[in-house]
Design a binder for these strands. Sequence first.
DNA 1: CGGGCTTTGTGCACACGTTCACAAACCGCC
DNA 2: GGCGGTTTGTGAACGTGTGCACAAAGCCCG
Lengths: 234, 234
Amino acid sequence: MPPHRSRRRIPEATVARLPVYLQILVDQAGEGVENISSEGLAELAGVNAAKVRKDLSYLGSYGTRGVGYEVDYLVYQIRRELGLDHDWPVVIVGAGNLGQALAGYGGFNDRGFPVAGLVDIDDDKVDTVVGGIRVRPLDELAQIVAARNVSIGVIATPPPAAQDAADRLVKAGVTSILNFAPVVLSVPVGITVRKVDLAVELQILSYHEQRRAAASQGGQLHAVSTDRGRGATA
Amino acid sequence: MPPHRSRRRIPEATVARLPVYLQILVDQAGEGVENISSEGLAELAGVNAAKVRKDLSYLGSYGTRGVGYEVDYLVYQIRRELGLDHDWPVVIVGAGNLGQALAGYGGFNDRGFPVAGLVDIDDDKVDTVVGGIRVRPLDELAQIVAARNVSIGVIATPPPAAQDAADRLVKAGVTSILNFAPVVLSVPVGITVRKVDLAVELQILSYHEQRRAAASQGGQLHAVSTDRGRGATA
DNA sequence: CGGGCTTTGTGCACACGTTCACAAACCGCC
DNA sequence: GGCGGTTTGTGAACGTGTGCACAAAGCCCG
């Protein structure tokens, strides 16, 4: 069976679901499950079975008709496709409330994203230790990125400092950024940015709450059906 | 001009962008800007101008041709549509690393989502104070929800406890959940759930990094163009 | 070895989201 | 009051994502 180095582009919507499948499959493997059908996986992932099949078909034809998918093999294939066959060290900029929580959050290390460094501009924070990581001055960012071959940066600064952090990360050679600051970053083409904004998430929920309230008061009530990649309504 | 209580449904993709526009508009208002064109707003939000106009058109016709949009009025309208004309108290389940960071994060309170309560199942954590909030036992969840009229719950527990937390939140009367645990929650219809999974975000970035590496080594390089609601590539 | 049952992989139709392009509306100035 | 310049609001085309439905493929059993 050929390694099948897919040069094929996978739709973004699918890329966003693969990690979810992966998580579930790893859990299932841990419970001794050897095979799983698209329907079974769909059930656990809370999506449509056809979607699961189509998603997995982008990886290649790794199922067996009449049987389903071999869990271990599927885990291997998804890992490979997502580039999770090796670790990706990350550097965190900003050792405030959130930066500390992130550094201390075990989930990073466990899932193949070791914290290669945690930097802050504030001298009072430098050299304090959080989650086993010693905070380094912002100036050492470039060094850390170069030394540990970091390609992913996490921005956990206050909003006004976020753009500067992004500029420094890019200059240091980072090509992917996960931005927790509620700010729209401007970066050169070719740099991938993803934004996680807690306030935005809450405001989206607020919209649905408001809508519910308005509906129950006046109009008829619809079954709300959120979705769109992340987030869903049952 | 009639208040225009829109009973119209707004597309999810638009709902996800409105908070971003809002943020920018508030900033602009703070700098004394009175009017803004769709192009100006689009520039700041990193999106297409036509998209801005279409998004805003779902709220009603609040622009003036040849001039643009009045910033203050637009802020008011977006706030109203998102249900941000009053506070939405939230209750946080789980006072671990993340739960504490969330409780301590000023952004919640500032943006209209005061923390009405922070509960944990672990007695050792109960009564400790984090971010000005005293941790309460899990059993008091229902009380807190009822007393403060909470409709939004935040799950910041370890994965195995997340479903139980969701069940308790729903039983207590919460109708929207923001889930930080890397677990697919199962909830009754009518409950809105949004999931924020840091590992998933990193894995999506990993995919793009892996792709970049594969491309530069073998095939031709494409301009990567991520997007999909949140996250973007420049 | 063939027939029945199960499950994948995918063509097709539909829904949703994005972008273009342009008429309609408004401002300000002459 | 009309004319040129500007910007909105939206119809229409396009692209992406979803879900159905079914043929193809494999397993098991008689």
